[in-house]
């Protein structure tokens, strides 16, 4: 049981590190979401600064036209 857990967890870690080390394009791909997340956040922020028409406390504000 212990051996199984140790081998599996270690193998996964080793495989991930190996891929990260040997495959530069993987690094670029795996890091991409952290930029797209911020880009998306900026888009929403820009939209939030637009004039607000419906401020009813429980009303949903549809941000898309």
């Amino acid at each position: 049981m212990i051996n199984l857990i140790v081998i599996l967890a270690s193998a996964i870690m080793f495989a991930l590190l190996l891929v990260w080390w040997r495959w530069p394009v993987f690094r670029v791909w795996i890091e991409a979401p952290k930029y797209s997340m911020l880009r998306q956040e900026r888009r929403f922020d820009d939209q939030e600064r637009e004039p607000v028409t419906n401020l009813s406390p429980m009303a949903s504000r549809r941000s898309s036209p």
Partner: peptide, 26 residues
């Protein structure tokens, strides 16, 4: 979510975040 959204900077490593994610669920 809150850390990069507030600091306006990307997280340190998305690779490490995914390693952490899968190890947590494993």
């Amino acid at each position: 979510y809150v850390i990069p959204a507030t600091t306006r900077r990307p997280i340190y490593s998305h690779f490490l975040s995914m390693v952490g994610f899968w190890l947590l669920f494993f």
